[in-house]
Each structure stands twice: as C-alpha cells, then as structure tokens.
Amino acid sequence: MSGIQLTRRGLLGLGATAASSLILAGCDQFDFVGERDGQVRKILEQANVMTYQVQRRLIGAQTLAREYSASEIRQGQRPNGSTDPTTPDYLALKANNFADYKLKVTGMVEQEVSFSLDELRNMPARSQITRHDCVEGWSCIAKWTGTPLGPILDMARVKPQARFAVYHCYDNIQKTLSGDIIYYTSSDLIDAYHPQSILSYGLNDQVLPVANGAPIRLRIERALGYKQPKYLHTIELVDDLSPFGKGKGGYWEDTGYDWYGGI
C-alpha cells in the first residue's frame, strides 16, 4: 500500500476528529428548519402529509389500538399539559361539580345537539385499558370509561360535506400578555367515528379527575396524547381548519407539531 505514512494512534485520532466534527456541524447551522414559514420547512412538512396518507391507506378505519389486561395498570395516569384550568367558565362549572356542564355538537350537522354529564353517563358505555403515548416519548397504561363518540355524531346527523371534527376545550393552555390561548385540536372523521373514540368521564374506575380533563376527555386511541383533548365542551363539524387558531388544526399543531399525530 502506497500513500501517506501515519502511526496507528494518529490515524485513530484523525478518525475520531472526523466523526466528532460531523456531529459538531449540527451546532446551529440547521436552526433555520425551525422557522415555521421557511420554504425548507414547508418541504420537510410534506413528509407528515405523506405519513398521514400512507397510514390512512394502510390502516383500516376499524383496527383497534391494543387493549391491555387490568394487571398492566401499574400506576396512576400521568397528567400533562393543562392540569387545572383557570378560565371563568371552567371555574364556575367546577364549583358546581359540573352539574351545569353541556357537551355540544355544532357546525355542519343537520341538528345541533347537547348533552349534560348525567345524560352522557347514562348512555351505553365502553371501557378500555389502553396505552397513552405522549409525543415526548413516554407511555402510561390506564382504564378509560366513556360513551362512544360515533353514535353521538349520528344523533346530530353530520352533513356529508363535513371533513373534520374540531374539539373545543375549556383550558387556557398558555397565558400571554394579549390574553389566554385556549386549547383545541381536531381530527378527521375516521378518528372521530373510531370504535375506541370515547368521551371519557371515568379513569381507572374513578370519576375523571380535573388533572386528567374532567368532566370529559376525548380518547383517540390511535394517536398521541395531544390528540386527546381534555376539558372538552364543543365538537364542531367543519370542512376547513384554517379559521381556527393559527389554522393548523390545534393548539400544538399551531406551534409546529404534525396534525395527524398517529406517529
């Protein structure tokens, strides 16, 4: 072998330097991908559209998220995000133990409907022990009890033009100088009608606590935690998500998370 003469130690050092310089190159040269309106960002985000479309074609509308046995419930459900909303409307409801609570279905429906907490609790219930996956990376298994959302949407008779369900919540997830930002998110109608999509009022055989979204939290079991809106009060059927918030279909989505949330 002809070429440069180097000692073994020198070569090893060179290799390590080359490797670490590649890592260090990530310092801040690529921070521009964080700019939400950048052209590169727009291209990169197309991968999320692709993920959504491929998963929707691949995964049936009815395939269920895994349900676990009771022995897998080894801890309480870890609260995250809003854990104690302070909006006046919510505080008033909470003071009265949610006796005046109404869940409303509005928007592109033939008949707007609303239900009290008692009415929801008296409807056919579904219990499921499922794994809650947070976008941060952790998972927590708990038993959720509630009434399936699909039949409730059927009572309101969703118009054929409707494409999305927007979930409006009570919690002020972020407090800014120009006022509170109220949590909301949205899903397609496949997730809304999914058999495990329930309006939960029970957690681990107890009444759903405030920290976990009392009185009603929607479970969308084939998606991450930020697609499971807590403190839910209105489900609005729409054909366009752009009028809400910053137009990305949810509070976290507006800050740059993917809308689908199934990965």
Binding site: Q55, L58, I59, G60, T63, L64, A65, R66, R131, D133, E221, R222, A223, L224, Y260, G262, I263
Partner: peptide, 8 residues
C-alpha cells in the same frame, strides 16, 4: 412507537 402502526 407509532400508535397508528401498532393498531395495524
């Protein structure tokens, strides 16, 4: 790690 893929 994808809850969607886990259902499939």
């Amino acid at each position: 790690m994808s809850p969607g893929m886990d259902s499939m």
